[in-house]
Design a protein around this nucleic acid. Structure first.
Lengths: 249, 249
DNA sequence: TTGATTTTCTATCACTTGATACAAATCAGT
DNA sequence: ACTGATTTGTATCAAGTGATAGAAAATCAA
């Protein structure tokens, strides 16, 4: 509710799709590759600052300065702050999808068969869960996972629109597998809740990372320590899915 | 970095403890009970708006308007926005402590004994975990749990200072119990990670609440549904702590 | 009531934010 | 080189932010 001028001098903003979606008309016509560079710089700077400071505190000026371009470039290429944020989310999501998509597809395909053993189902769950865990525990492209975590916390438009697209799939796959392992209908509360927890644990790795590291006296989750983390997490998941000894209660 | 004036006309702000701590000098000297009312209104409005909008987006003006008082009242009673936020956190924390403190104390006392059975240890864990779960799943004072979740996401000063005070205790107790159940040293990665997950699951209930409810087709966690949730969560915890069948793999 | 103190309110400050207008610079195709 | 489009930069806008000054009102102790 900040930039709603009562009477904009020109009608350009309102004539261009509410002023925030799709403002770049440069990639449409071919050529003019020069701008693509600054566009990229803006994306990277955006991801970094949004991740570090959150949506509100990351000012467009700081982002532009960080990218080494002028402020209006941001409006020009992304139509505004929200547009940039959205683009950042899509950029990350695209990368995540390209890295996790194949595995997910393979799992979904394998799930077609109805004669899978418990061990096989667990293996499929692991195949879809483990890359995620690695991506969130590690901080290789620190800002990416952080950006992810931010978007989750703030209820931006980017969340519902983008995160859902990948979170839902992951959850749906988890539900399918858990349902079959436990031998319960996919719609049953038990299956849903447990699946949400399994998927949620992954994001928890990111959120609780500093606390975990501090408590353990570690500095990161790399190499052997990452293996340990994965092992413990996985052991927890499998045993929580075991038909094993009735919980003492 | 917004209100750092180069040369403040008066030195009051800097003469009053950096300007954000303890600005209310009304409760010190007795009497003048009139103000306590607006102070309370500001706290409630603060909790509500901070919870709904987050720290940044909740403007002092909106809070004051919501509380039905004028803007400077906020400065007067809490020294500023940050002071109010801190006060809100303390206010909630105080209530949480009063509701969970006794049980926690009882558990800590019971842990003195070293001859506790697995079942007894589990019971203690449950005693300290369950009230938390209820508080986060329910939305009686919707804003409270939401405020809690917000503070967790944004890295406000309130987080480190306040949340730690209660989160650390809970985590420490969980570690102690898990360590004894698993028969591993408290400092071992397995114990730490598993404990963090147990505690983290509780906050996850809040964060993933809308997703879980939507997936289940429920509207809230009340009555029987709350029972189901608690049951499933608890079953997951116990079986993840079971010495049971070695995880397949 | 008086007088000191606490509490509230109006107006305003200094500053930041996101967004624009518009001219200058750059580029591609001829 | 010329032309038309794209891209960048300067200066500026309007709105909104948290905070303050300072007078007016309300409150309590005497």
């Amino acid at each position: 509710m900040r930039n709603r001028r009562p009477a904009p001098r020109t009608a350009r903003a309102s004539a261009q799709g509410a002023g925030n979606k799709r403002a770049r008309r440069h990639t449409a016509g071919g050529g003019y590759a020069r701008g693509e560079h600054t566009r990229q710089r803006l994306l990277e700077a955006g991801i970094e600052l949004f991740a570090e400071l959150g949506y509100e505190r990351a000012s467009t000026r700081a982002i532009a300065r960080h990218a080494g371009v002028s402020l209006p470039a941001l409006q020009y290429y992304f139509g505004g702050k929200e547009g940039l944020h959205r683009a950042c989310a899509e950029y990350i999501m695209e990368d995540v999808r390209s890295r996790l998509g194949p595995a997910a597809e393979r799992v979904r395909l394998a799930l077609e068969r109805s004669d899978l053993t418990r061990a096989q189902l667990l293996e499929l769950l692991r195949a879809v869960v483990e890359p995620f865990l690695e991506g969130l525990a590690t901080d290789r492209p620190e800002s990416w996972a952080l950006f992810f975590a931010r978007v989750q916390g703030e209820h931006n438009a980017a969340f519902e629109a983008i995160f859902e697209q990948i979170g839902r799939r992951l959850l749906a796959t988890a539900i399918e597998i858990v349902s079959r392992i436990l031998g319960l209908p996919a719609a049953s509360p038990e299956v849903t809740i447990r699946s949400v927890f399994i998927v949620g644990q992954l994001t928890l790795v990111r959120r609780a990372r500093p606390i975990m590291l501090r408590t353990l006296g570690w500095t990161d989750f790399e190499g052997e320590r990452l293996q340990t983390l994965k092992e413990v997490v996985w052991k927890g998941i499998t045993s929580s899915l075991s038909p094993g000894p009735k919980a003492s209660q």
